[in-house]
Amino acid sequence: MTQPLRLAHAAGHEKNKWGDYDRMPDPSAILNAVVAGVLLGGFYAAVALGIAIAFGMLDIPNLSHPAFVVMGAFATWVLNSTFGIDPIVAGLLMTGPFFILGVLLYRLYHTCFESRGEAPLQGLAFFFGILFITEVVLVLTAGADYRSVQADYIGVSLNLGSLTLPFRMLVPFVVSIAMLFALQQFLTRSFTGRAILAVSQDKLALQLMGVSPTRIKALAFGISIATAAVAGSLLIIIQPVEPSIGRDFIGRAFAAVVLGGMGSFWGMLIASIILGITESIVSDMWNPSWAPAIAFGFLLPTLAFRSGGLLGRKL
């Protein structure tokens, strides 16, 4: 379950561990680890984006989001291996069906839990169940093996002096930031986007405006699941994917959202990058098996002592 991500360090630095050094680690190794961490963090932001919308803005604790990311990765794999479609394009193609899936899931959640009043226990367990079901269905349909995709930029690196930037990390980073920027623009510029922001702040105001919060929430939740399709295509570019890999991202993504101050995109991006850098350095210099625990190392103190996140919003 704790399959650490294969980090984006250059081949020459594979064996950098404290034990191998008589002196301080090579500065270029550190630089490479930091840059790899930034790229990794950018990808984490793509996964956390959907949770920032669902949990941070709509107050829907969608634990199953990472399972949808993995589902997106498998959809990308199918499109790529059958039709030779570029993974990014495949991810974008899948946003439509994922959006509809999200709207339907929200409808179910709303009728069963939200409209019955507060039911946090059932709601959480519901999403946990969805996570689990999605995973098992993927195992039953696609098998438990690791799957990967083909694209020209996978396996190629950009070299800048001693700095090595593999495209399989660079491309997801760029796509992730672009997606974040586009959604930010949509939320602040368009009428629908503003309505979503309004829902996250004040339900009543929206009702007074004559907009149904349920419809807006369904739309926003649909968007959050649609981002999972893109995040999934990024994931399978970075590393081979198997069905249960999604769980590793639950802690990371929720940590990024909480740390980022719930619902703030830029706070979440900064938190993701900090997380990415820390994981990359720990994996490189110490031991990759600790990487999944780092998110928790950030999350717990944040919850306990600084519940407003890095940028100081109230939980």
């Binding site: 379950m1 639950i250 940590a255 999944p292 998110a295 717990l300």
Partner: peptide, 16 residues
């Protein structure tokens, strides 16, 4: 909700 998320993460960290 936050307690729940923390317990989820606890499982991951204790396994590490």
């Amino acid at each position: 909700v936050f307690f729940s998320i923390a317990t989820l993460a606890l499982a991951i960290v204790s396994q590490a």
